[in-house]
Write a protein that binds this DNA or RNA. Structure first.
Length: 265
DNA sequence: ATGCCCGCGATACGCGGA
């Protein structure tokens, strides 16, 4: 079973790239981020025609997440618990029934967090990011008690290590790569989650995002910020991970590329 | 120099992204 994550940077602007990728990569489940549209405007028909069930948690103009699945959805839960006032659409959790039993999958669009001011804790966007990461940790701890395969897949907006950017000195201090962010990401992993790229590959210099500006793609100036975090029951059945870098070469590409995990589920 | 590119949209000398 292939479970993928991809920040598409607008589903409407990306439909040609998305359908072409679905047809060739043929994932069983695809978690999408930054669909940038409301649920009613999501282009369902073209994707359903490729054999996918669709759930969305959309928002006008910004954010928005979706899950596409060849298997039917047994359960759907939009929103990350812990802050009823949070109106940003960044989390969508589903359960599908694989041949080995239920598999819980979440599409995650973790806040960017920039700008970070001189006092990080007085930076509204950065404190929102840190709060969101703490909420994700609390929720993931509760989900781990289910002792089932759990895959938290998405755009984490976290550069885990210096080797996951072309320019660690340049990035250091940014909301994606600074001590408080790394501490929160480590705390999330430390509850018992496995970062899938670390499990199977762990090379430096493998990126999932290249900025549109300044010839970043042409010069391979990228960062690795799209991740799959796995419960022990998912990690035990994990087979391998691929970054679909070639997708960045296409017409009107997203600035992110898909990351695809293979599981014996 | 926070600009360069991209998508959205009360189409803005705007905003957010990373």
């Amino acid at each position: 079973m292939k479970i993928a994550t991809w920040n598409v940077n607008s589903i409407k602007a990306r439909m040609h790239a998305v359908t072409a990728w679905l047809e060739t990569a043929n994932p069983d489940v695809a978690c999408l981020q930054e669909i940038k549209t409301v649920d009613d405007s999501f282009p369902r028909l073209e994707i359903e025609a490729l054999g996918y069930n669709i759930v969305t948690h959309g928002q006008k103009s910004y954010n928005g997440v979706a899950v596409l699945s060849k298997l039917p959805f047994e359960d759907v839960n939009p929103r990350l618990p812990g802050d009823e006032s949070d109106e940003q659409a960044r989390y969508l959790e589903v359960v599908v029934s694989a041949k080995t039993g239920p598999v819980r999958i979440a599409s995650i669009y973790l806040p960017n967090g920039n700008p970070v001011r001189e006092d990080p804790l007085k930076s509204p966007k950065y404190t929102y990011k840190l709060d969101w990461m703490a909420r994700l940790k609390t929720h993931a701890e509760a989900l781990l008690k289910n002792e089932e395969p759990l895959i938290l897949a998405g755009d984490y907006n976290v550069i885990p290590r210096s080797v996951d950017t072309h320019d660690p000195k340049g990035w250091w201090g940014d909301a994606l790569f600074r001590q408080e962010t790394l501490d929160a990401f480590h705390a999330l992993k430390y509850i018992g989650l496995t970062e899938m790229f670390e499990q199977f590959d762990n090379r430096g210099g493998e990126f999932t995002f290249w900025d549109y500006q300044g010839g970043a793609w042409q010069n391979n100036l990228g960062i690795r910020i799209d991740h799959l975090l796995l419960s022990p029951q998912a990690a035990d059945r994990a087979k391998g991970i691929e970054i679909h870098k070639h997708v960045r070469e296409g017409q009107k590409p997203s600035d992110h590329v898909p990351v695809v995990g293979e599981f014996d589920l």
